[in-house]
Amino acid sequence: MTTSKPALPDIVSTEQWDTALSQLLIKEKALTRAQDALNAERRRLPMVKIENDYRFDGETGQVSLLDLFDGRRQLIVYHFMFAPDWSQGCPGCSWVVEAMPHLAHLHARNTSLVLVSRAPLEKLEGYKKRMGWDLPWYSSFGSDFNADFGVTTPQGEKHGVSILLRDGDSIYRSYFTGARGVEHLGSHWTYLDLTPWGRQETWEDSPKGWPQTEPYSWMHRHDEYGD
């Protein structure tokens, strides 16, 4: 039996490699600046007020949408595909969850992150234990939350990320992305970039009055933030 070797990039001299790399880095830097501009535009998106009194089942009992903020101003909701009649969670959503950052880094920027699925809490807790996760996961079973947020449709379940901001007890939805829009998520930077306040650093192009600190000055090890 004959086997073919996998294809390889061209092999060149160190000088040629340096030249090719330098040319690519110019394009990568341009892409970074374009992403910065897009993030700045996202921070200026208008919002829609959430009027419904949604209820969720969690490990401490039934809670409200406001409770999911856990006292913080911003909330990232990952809509995890897990329908009530499924025996286990979506494998693609599981990939996304296992790339999520340590939540302490988001909490340090006044931002909470939760998972929400339609399956009953008992199923969520069982799958969570199987996967070894400790992320907060809530069931929207029996409510209109998933349908209202566009992730449960007549065609089936969808995954996605909703960004919410609260002002006192008033809650607003500022952003949503789904499908391949979640593929780049996997660090606290990319999650914070989705929120109205962004990374909250002085270099960012943000509207006047946004909370900001000097770059990196707020960053600590996850067990060093305190409360």
Rank of each mutant, 00 (worst) to 15 (best):
residue 143 S to H: 08
residue 145 F to V: 10
residue 158 K to S: 07
residue 145 F to C: 11
residue 147 A to C: 15
residue 154 P to A: 14
residue 143 S to M: 05
residue 151 V to D: 00
residue 170 S to R: 15
residue 168 G to H: 04
residue 151 V to H: 00
residue 158 K to R: 15
residue 164 L to G: 01
residue 169 D to F: 08
residue 168 G to I: 10
residue 157 E to V: 12
residue 171 I to N: 03
residue 145 F to G: 06
residue 153 T to K: 09
residue 156 G to C: 14
residue 145 F to P: 00
residue 149 F to L: 03
residue 144 D to Q: 14
residue 173 R to T: 02
residue 149 F to Y: 10
residue 156 G to A: 09
residue 152 T to G: 05
residue 147 A to S: 15
residue 163 I to L: 03
residue 168 G to Q: 04
residue 152 T to A: 13
residue 151 V to G: 03
residue 154 P to C: 08
residue 168 G to C: 08
residue 173 R to I: 06
residue 159 H to Y: 03
residue 152 T to F: 05
residue 165 L to E: 12
residue 154 P to T: 12
residue 160 G to K: 01
residue 164 L to C: 05
residue 172 Y to S: 08
residue 154 P to Y: 07
residue 150 G to H: 07
residue 144 D to C: 11
residue 173 R to H: 09
residue 166 R to Q: 06
residue 148 D to F: 04
residue 151 V to P: 01
residue 146 N to L: 03
residue 152 T to C: 09
residue 148 D to M: 07
residue 164 L to A: 02
residue 145 F to A: 01
residue 150 G to D: 10
residue 168 G to N: 09
residue 150 G to K: 07
residue 171 I to Q: 04
residue 151 V to W: 00
residue 148 D to I: 04
residue 166 R to H: 03
residue 157 E to N: 10
residue 159 H to T: 05
residue 168 G to L: 03
residue 171 I to G: 01
residue 160 G to M: 00
residue 167 D to N: 12
residue 146 N to C: 08
residue 163 I to W: 00
residue 158 K to M: 12
residue 146 N to Q: 09
residue 160 G to H: 00
residue 155 Q to M: 12
residue 167 D to R: 11
residue 148 D to R: 12
residue 169 D to C: 13
residue 150 G to T: 09
residue 151 V to C: 02
residue 164 L to E: 01
residue 143 S to K: 13
residue 165 L to Y: 14
residue 158 K to T: 12
residue 168 G to W: 04
residue 148 D to C: 06
residue 160 G to E: 01
residue 145 F to T: 03
residue 145 F to N: 06
residue 170 S to N: 15
residue 145 F to H: 08
residue 165 L to P: 06
residue 149 F to G: 05
residue 163 I to R: 01
residue 171 I to D: 01
